[in-house]
């Protein structure tokens, strides 16, 4: 188990290193340089700014400095916001995105497992058909459309009833979380429902289910003790990529609902060409996603005893 963990963490670190390197060189391939946007008005100011941001050094030196700063968890200072460090930005805005993302994942995972089980139980009957229509909707409608439609619907509802049932934007109260989490989680929910349905149907035909039935285990016992436990495994394996999808999906949903999360900040930084923030946030997001996937892998190993995690090298 320990060896497996070490192996996973090492490969994760290599990926993060690769992400950092790719980010660094991608940003240095940009034509012109970050000081072009009207800040460096005279050669003296330009030289001073270059010194401040270390841009006067050779590229390789900049690269090693960048890597060692990253390794120490220092992402540098923002180019456009006066003396604000990228770490501050992350510290301030990431928790908001993380809360929203985790809530959306929770919605998607629990909803997907529940709806997927229901569709499998009522295969080809009304509940199955109805849920599959919702699934098709969720898979083919982009999250920003879902978000906007929800806003429109709730605004109309608020207007008709004259109450404010749910806020349609902003941040700070629990009510602000409901719509964004649903909009963000819907497509993943649809995907997981589909996966759960097919894996549930596969499990239902398995020999051990027949054996359990022959032994006289009650249908509920079979469902919770055998079917659900086995069918849920494929869902867990795709949770890692699902977290990645939801995290980047947050970029859009945070825009639509005016939530001050890190995703919105990233988009803003790209619009302002704030180089250090873009680099820092890319590496940060990359590391976050890589380690989320590892976490899910480890959880999978713990849940499924059939997988001898020590041996299974390519268990993806």
């Amino acid at each position: 188990m320990i060896r497996y963990l070490l192996k996973q963490v090492t490969s994760g670190l290599i990926t993060v290193y690769f992400i950092a390197t790719a980010t660094f060189f991608a940003m240095h391939a940009v034509p012109g340089d970050p000081l072009m946007g009207g800040k460096a008005t005279t050669p003296e100011i330009r030289a001073n700014l270059q010194r401040k941001y270390g841009l006067d050094r050779p590229v390789l030196e900049q690269y090693t400095t960048f890597l060692s700063n990253m390794a120490r968890g220092d992402f540098g200072i923002s180019f456009t916001q006066h003396n604000r460090s990228v770490n501050d930005i992350i510290r301030e805005h990431f928790p908001i995105s993380a809360v929203l993302g985790l809530l959306a994942i929770a919605v998607a995972a629990t909803g997907g497992v529940m709806l997927g089980s229901i569709t499998a139980i009522f295969r080809n009957r009304l509940p199955d058909r109805a849920i599959m229509v919702l699934v098709i909707f969720g898979v083919s409608v982009p999250s920003f459309v879902v978000a906007a439609l929800m806003q429109l619907g709730i605004t109309e509802l608020n207007r008709l009833t004259g109450l404010s049932i749910l806020p349609v934007g902003g941040w700070g109260e629990a009510g602000h979380l409901v719509l964004p989490a649903l909009a963000l989680g819907l497509s993943t929910l649809a995907f997981l429902t589909r996966l759960m349905r097919s894996s549930m149907l596969e499990v239902t035909g398995a020999d051990y289910i027949r054996t359990a039935r022959a032994k006289g285990v009650s249908p509920t016992g079979i469902f919770f003790g055998h079917q659900l436990r086995n069918a849920v495994l494929p869902v867990i394996t795709v949770l890692g990529p699902a977290i990645a999808a939801i995290t980047t999906g947050g970029f859009v949903v945070e825009q639509v609902f005016a939530i001050p999360g890190l995703g919105r900040y990233f988009v803003q930084a790209v619009h302002q060409l704030d180089y250090t923030v873009i680099m820092g946030l890319t590496v940060f997001y990359g590391a976050y996603l890589v380690f989320m996937v590892i976490l899910v892998d480890i959880a999978y190993g713990l849940i499924d005893p059939r997988i001898r995690v020590g041996k299974a090298g390519g268990s993806r």
Binding site: T15, A26, M27, V270, H271
Partner: peptide
């Protein structure tokens, strides 16, 4: 394996900047 591990959308955005496509 390395390229697949990259966060796709982040790098789409990064490449766009790297290609010199401004906002």
């Amino acid at each position: 394996d390395l390229v697949v591990a990259l966060p796709f959308l982040l790098f789409m955005i990064l490449f766009r900047i790297a290609f010199g496509v401004g906002p």
